[in-house]
Computed example of a mutant assay.
Amino acid sequence: MRISSGERVANYLILTVFAVFALYPILTILVAAFSKDTQAPGGFANFQQAWEIGRFGRSLLNSVLVSAFVVVTSVVLSVLAGFAFGTMRFRGSSVLFYLMLLGIMMPAEAIVVPLFFDLRAIGLTDTFWAIVLPQVAQSVAFGTFWLRAFFRTSSRALLEAARLDGAGSLRTLWSVLVPQARPAIVTLVVLVFMWTWNEFLIPLVMVPSNEALRTAPLGLSFFSGQYTQGFTLLAAGATIVALPVVIVYLFLQRHFIAGMLEGAVKE
């Protein structure tokens, strides 16, 4: 279908308006982060001062460790579960799949308090596991749904050819399907990383008294509430916390967009 020049101009105009609308808050934060006020000297010195006052080094390291564990564990389990639900037929598969979908439909706010008491009963609160295990469970639920949709559309002829060549289920998965699913898997990696890095409620509830396990969003929250009332240093701290997500997205954006488009076409 041919698009007229007027329609093309209108499309670019609409996209420009939405881009300005989306980027304006980000630019406002960046400008404020480099500004000067009574508490901040201005420029890159704002980031140094915010880093020292907010002690972001430890909280960023905690977020890196938590995100790495959640992403790796969730993606591996999601690939295995998505492959099973997408290519195999076994008794109770539909019931198990829809039961797993409860992890997507159930908001964290509804289960975080009962989960806290369950983890406290087995001595896991105020530990690394209390932060990562609930997030792994949530991420695996979405990851299974996401990758099941991809594996269900995989070529049956290709799977049969792999089996005729003597490849088992795991060999077929890792050697045949995973390379084809790279855009979908990378998209899942980016989404899980962003969700895990930005998670605030679970670390707040699960580690109420262990300051050494505070993640970056928690560190930013305590920084804004205890150390400074100025918006400039707070903007610098927010930029520090958000920067890793931006870097990961920019590094993987081509695969992320390809996976999103591929999933949209398949659905």
Score class of each variant (00 low, 15 high):
53 I>D: 03
140 V>F: 07
198 N>H: 07
109 E>G: 14
109 E>Q: 14
245 V>H: 07
264 A>W: 02
68 A>P: 10
18 F>I: 13
170 L>W: 13
33 A>Y: 12
53 I>K: 11
32 A>I: 09
56 F>Y: 06
22 A>V: 04
35 S>I: 03
258 A>F: 12
174 W>C: 08
178 V>E: 02
156 R>C: 01
239 T>Q: 11
205 V>Q: 04
116 F>K: 07
119 L>R: 05
48 Q>Y: 12
166 G>E: 09
186 V>H: 10
147 L>A: 03
181 A>S: 07
213 L>D: 09
129 W>G: 10
85 F>M: 08
201 L>G: 04
235 A>S: 15
152 R>L: 12
173 L>A: 00
26 I>P: 12
117 F>D: 00
171 R>A: 13
38 T>V: 12
211 E>H: 13
116 F>R: 01
217 P>D: 03
82 G>L: 08
136 V>N: 09
212 A>N: 02
37 D>Y: 10
83 F>I: 00
120 R>K: 13
227 Y>Q: 03
255 H>F: 10
184 A>N: 15
248 V>G: 10
79 V>K: 08
49 Q>K: 15
12 Y>D: 01
236 A>V: 02
78 S>C: 08
173 L>N: 00
66 V>G: 11
130 A>G: 15
68 A>N: 04
59 S>M: 03
16 T>Y: 06
87 T>P: 06
156 R>G: 08
162 A>C: 01
49 Q>P: 11
87 T>F: 06
1 M>Y: 07
230 G>N: 08
70 V>R: 12
64 V>E: 01
40 A>M: 09
171 R>I: 06
39 Q>L: 06
228 T>W: 10
30 L>R: 08
136 V>D: 02
